[in-house]
C-alpha cells in the first residue's frame, strides 16, 4: 500500500510537468486549431536556457527561470509570426507540416555545435535534494518544488484567462476569429499573446523537468512533448482544465504501468491510450462535443 502511494507521488511529479506542456498545446489549439508540434522543442530550449544561464552566465536560479520563460515566450511569438501566420488561411495541413518543420529545425539547429551542441549535459542541481520519510512514504523537496511551482503557474494562468481583459479576448478569439475582429479585438496580437503564454509555460516545464531528471540534450523534448500532446487529447484538446486532468492521468499511467505492468511497455501503453481516445471519444474527457471544425 505504502509503495503504491509512493508510486502515485512519482506519477504526480511527472504529471505536473506534463501539465505545463499540455497547456501550451491546448491553448494554441483552442485559439487557432493548430497542433503546434514545435511545442516540445520550446520545452527543450527552456531547459537549455536555464542551464546556460546558471552554468555559463552564473545567474542565480530564481533569475534563470523567468529569463528562460521570457526568451521562450519570444521564441513562441517568432515561430508563430514566421511559420504559422502566413499559413493561417491556408489548408490546415499546410500549417501542420510547417509545425513539424519548425520542430525539426529547432532540434537539429539546437544540435549544432555553436548553438547547444549535440551532447548530453548534466544539469547541476540548484539546491541539494532533501528526502523526507513520512512513515514509509517518501517525499523529496524536488517533488514539493515541482508541485508548488506548477500550482502557482496554473493559478496565474487561470487568472489571466478568466479575469483579465486579454483573457476575455483570448476566449473570444477562440470562439470566432471574425466576430472577435468585428468587436475590435486585435486577433493577431491575441494569438501572439497565446503563443507567448504557452511557450513560457513550456519553458517552466523544461526547467522543472531538468531539475527533476537532471540531464538535457537537444532531443529531450520529443518524448515529453508527445506524452503531453496525448494528455491534451485525452483531456479534450482546446480545454484548459482538460489538459490539466489529462496530464495528471498520463503521469500516473506512465509511472504505474512501469511499476506494475512492465517498464518496457510504458510508452506503448501511453500511446495506446492516444489511439483509443481518438477512436472512441475524439473530443476527450472534458472537451466540447459537437461538430468538429477541423
Amino acid at each position: 500500500m505504502i509503495e503504491a502511494i509512493n508510486q502515485v507521488l512519482n506519477g504526480l511529479q511527472l504529471g505536473l510537468v506534463y501539465a505545463l506542456i499540455a497547456l501550451g498545446y491546448t491553448m494554441v489549439y483552442g485559439i487557432i486549431r493548430l497542433i503546434n508540434f514545435a511545442h516540445g522543442d520550446v520545452f527543450m530550449v527552456g531547459a537549455f536556457i536555464a542551464f546556460i544561464s546558471t552554468v555559463n552566465w552564473h545567474l542565480p536560479f530564481y533569475i534563470a527561470v523567468p529569463l528562460s520563460m521570457l526568451i521562450c515566450a519570444a521564441l513562441g511569438v517568432i515561430i508563430e509570426r514566421l511559420a504559422y501566420r502566413p499559413l493561417r488561411y491556408a489548408a490546415r495541413i499546410a500549417a501542420l507540416i510547417s509545425a513539424i518543420g519548425v520542430s525539426l529545425l529547432i532540434e537539429y539547429g539546437g544540435s549544432l555545435k555553436f548553438v547547444f551542441g549535440p551532447n548530453y549535459r548534466v544539469v547541476p542541481q540548484p539546491f541539494s535534494v532533501v528526502q523526507w520519510d513520512l512513515s514509509g512514504i517518501s517525499v523529496s523537496n524536488i517533488q514539493v518544488i515541482v508541485l508548488v511551482t506548477v500550482v502557482i503557474l496554473l493559478a496565474g494562468l487561470q487568472y489571466l484567462v478568466a479575469r483579465t481583459k486579454t483573457g476575455k479576448a483570448m476566449r473570444a478569439v477562440s470562439f470566432d476569429h471574425d466576430a472577435a475582429r468585428l468587436m475590435g479585438i486585435n486577433v493577431d496580437a491575441i494569438i501572439s499573446y497565446t503563443f507567448a503564454l504557452g511557450s513560457a509555460l513550456a519553458a517552466a516545464g523544461g526547467v522543472l523537468y531538468s531539475v527533476a531528471y537532471p540531464q538535457i540534450n537537444p532531443f529531450m523534448g520529443i518524448m515529453p512533448g508527445l506524452k503531453a500532446f496525448t494528455a491534451a487529447v485525452l483531456g479534450g484538446i482546446g480545454s484548459i482544465p482538460g489538459a490539466m486532468l489529462g496530464a495528471l492521468i498520463m503521469g500516473q499511467v506512465d509511472v504505474l504501468s512501469a511499476a506494475y505492468i512492465s517498464s518496457q511497455l510504458r510508452d506503448a501503453i501511453a500511446f495506446t491510450i492516444l489511439i483509443l481516445v481518438l477512436l472512441v471519444k475524439p473530443s476527450g474527457l472534458l472537451g466540447k462535443t459537437g461538430p468538429e471544425k477541423v
Binding site: 508510486q7 506519477g11 511529479q13 511499476a259 517498464s263
Partner: peptide, 8 residues
C-alpha cells in the same frame, strides 16, 4: 529519464 517507478 524517469526511473522513479522501478527505483521505488
Amino acid at each position: 529519464v524517469d526511473f522513479s517507478a522501478v527505483l521505488t
